[in-house]
Simulated assay, not measured.
Amino acid sequence: MEQNIFDLLSTYRKFKPHMLMVLIHLCYTFGYFIIEASFNHGMSPHVFVTYRYFVGGVVIFPFAYFFERNVRPKLTFALFLEIFVLSLMGVCLAVNMCFASMKYTSPTFVAAMLNTIASITFIIAVPLRYEVLDFQHPRGIAKILGTLISLSGVMIMTLYKGPTMRNFYGPLIHIQGKNGAIHKNLLIGSILSISSCVTWSIWYIMQASIMKRYAAPLSLTTWVTLVGAAQSAVFTMIVEHNLSSWRIGLNIHLWSILYGGIVVAGLIIYIQLWCIEKKGPVFVTVFNPLSTILVAILAYFVFGEKLYLGSIIGAVIVIVGLYFLLWGKEGDQEVQTNTKYKWTCSSIVDPECKMQPIASVKKEEVQIQVV
């Protein structure tokens, strides 16, 4: 009996990161639909982004204050300007465009598009020398092929609609609200979605730079969410002239804001950081397509959403390309963790003798999925 309990605990510890990553993407999946339901009932995407990131910043603030008070660098004016630009790219622009695109497409389409962020980031990082092209190594070729395959999948999703996949069962849950004008323009939705992915890719690269000078991820996340919420509020006041759109009652709007702020911006970030610490960033990114699969299944079988053949083919191609890219990136992680050293002299008895790395490899930055 005791041996069985010990085996169960050992198995649980071994697969705990895997179970937590599945839980994360279940939370993301549910989040897509509660957000879409809120939009369908008249919630402005820009008001939602403002409230959500304000709630997220308030939730993360106490953890950042207590856990990083001894390691948090001093915030200078120049550093604050960088955080301002980082918030503008990662919250005000990227997230607003992402959620606005959901009004013209669907959660399935948006979830599939988000898988292209890794490929777009790779394209932008190469000329900035954050990534190196190696045509003589299989993993280097895999990164290039993965990028091209992912982008071809995006082109198929955008330009080819195809026949509707027939659903023999009616929707089990109806989320269509009073706003019946959604999902009407795939082109506009595609442009917004691709633009948000490009902006997020630039945001990730900027993170790599600012984290070197402000190595306090929770504090940085708090600043980015709160500053981004303020920027989004200004943007919303410019584009939303109806003051009633800011009023939130005890309805789906409130629950979507609380869910997005507490669960997505609070709990999920903490779990992701723990998984990254235990298993590394490559392990975390491998699970990203799980959201696409879960969203497609729920959208089709539970909510009765239309699925088009072009979207399914494109999403599969994007995921295949993502895994090619991740396999190539995993080689970078292995080189980083297995850096080889050599002696600088012929004998270790020599007092001037010391170890030096044969090749220095830049530490891979942590990238957290944003929804």
Rank of each mutant, 00 (worst) to 15 (best):
I120Q: 10
S119C: 10
N179I: 00
D7A: 11
K212E: 13
F283T: 05
M211C: 12
I156E: 05
I188K: 12
E330Y: 09
A233Q: 05
L267E: 03
M97P: 00
P45W: 07
F33E: 07
V263M: 11
L23N: 03
G314H: 05
I319E: 02
F99I: 07
T147P: 07
Y214P: 01
V316L: 14
Q272I: 10
I317P: 01
F61H: 01
I210H: 00
P351I: 00
L148Q: 13
E82H: 14
A359C: 09
V49L: 06
I312L: 14
I358F: 04
V316F: 11
P171F: 02
A229D: 02
W246M: 06
Q367S: 06
K279W: 01
H183S: 15
S291F: 05
Q176D: 11
L307W: 05
L88H: 09
I144T: 10
W203D: 01
A181P: 00
V55Q: 02
G56T: 11
F283E: 11
L81P: 00
C345K: 08
F287E: 04
S106I: 07
S232W: 09
S311E: 15
F77W: 09
C27T: 01
Q272S: 05
I182D: 02
I210F: 04
I175P: 05
I262W: 03
L322T: 12
N96R: 12
